[in-house]
Amino acid sequence: MGSQIPNGNDRSRTYWTPTMERYFVDLMLEHMQKGNRVGHTFNKQAWNDMLAVFNAKFGSQYDKDVLKSRYTNLWKQFNDIKSMLGQVGFSWDDVRNMVVADDYVWDAYIKAHPDARPYKIKSVQNFSDLCLIYGYTTADGRYSRSSHDVDIDDEVTGVISGDGVGTPTPSTTERLRTEWTLAMDQFFTELLLRQQEKGNKLDSNINSYTKEAWTEMLNSFNEKFGPHHTKRVLRHRYKKLFKYYTDITVLLKQDGFSWDSQQQKVVANDDVWDAYIKAHPQSRSYRAKSMPNYQDLESIFGSAIVDKSQFNNNLDEDIVTKAGA
Rank of each mutant, 00 (worst) to 15 (best):
M1T: 05
M1W: 01
G8K: 07
N9M: 11
D10Y: 12
R13A: 10
P18S: 08
V25W: 03
L29S: 08
H31Q: 10
H31F: 14
Q33A: 14
G35E: 11
G39D: 04
T41N: 04
T41I: 02
F42H: 05
Q45G: 10
A46N: 08
A46Q: 06
N48E: 15
D49P: 04
L51T: 02
V53S: 05
V53T: 13
A56T: 07
K57H: 14
K57Q: 14
F58K: 04
S60W: 12
Q61N: 12
K64Q: 13
V66L: 08
L67A: 10
K68C: 12
S69H: 15
S69Y: 13
R70Y: 09
T72N: 14
K76P: 00
Q77N: 08
N79Y: 11
N79F: 12
F90R: 04
W92G: 03
D93V: 03
D93R: 09
D94L: 15
R96L: 14
R96M: 10
N97C: 09
M98G: 05
M98K: 13
A101Q: 01
Y104K: 03
W106M: 04
D107M: 06
A108Q: 05
A108L: 00
I110F: 12
A112S: 13
P114Q: 15
P114C: 15
P114K: 09
R117S: 15
Y119D: 07
K120I: 08
Q125H: 10
F127N: 03
L130D: 04
I133K: 05
Y136Q: 12
T138I: 11
Y143A: 09
S146W: 09
S146C: 08
H148F: 14
D149K: 06
I152M: 13
I152Q: 13
D153G: 01
E155W: 10
T157P: 00
S161T: 10
G162C: 07
T167F: 11
P170A: 12
R175P: 01
L176Q: 07
W180V: 09
L182H: 10
D185N: 12
E190G: 08
L191K: 01
Q196P: 01
K201S: 11
K201Q: 15
S204M: 11
N205I: 07
T210K: 04
A213Q: 00
W214P: 00
E216R: 02
L218D: 01
L218C: 08
E223N: 14
E223C: 12
F225R: 06
F225G: 08
K231R: 06
K231D: 04
V233M: 09
V233T: 14
Y238S: 03
K239D: 10
K240V: 07
L241F: 13
F242C: 09
F242Y: 07
Y245I: 03
Y245V: 00
T249I: 01
L252C: 09
K253C: 03
G256R: 02
W259V: 04
Q264A: 12
Q264G: 08
A268W: 00
W273R: 00
A275L: 12
Y276A: 02
I277N: 00
P281R: 10
R284D: 02
M291I: 09
N293S: 04
Y294R: 00
I300S: 04
F301V: 04
S303E: 14
A304Q: 11
A304F: 03
D307N: 15
K308W: 14
D318F: 00
I319W: 07
I319E: 08
A325L: 10
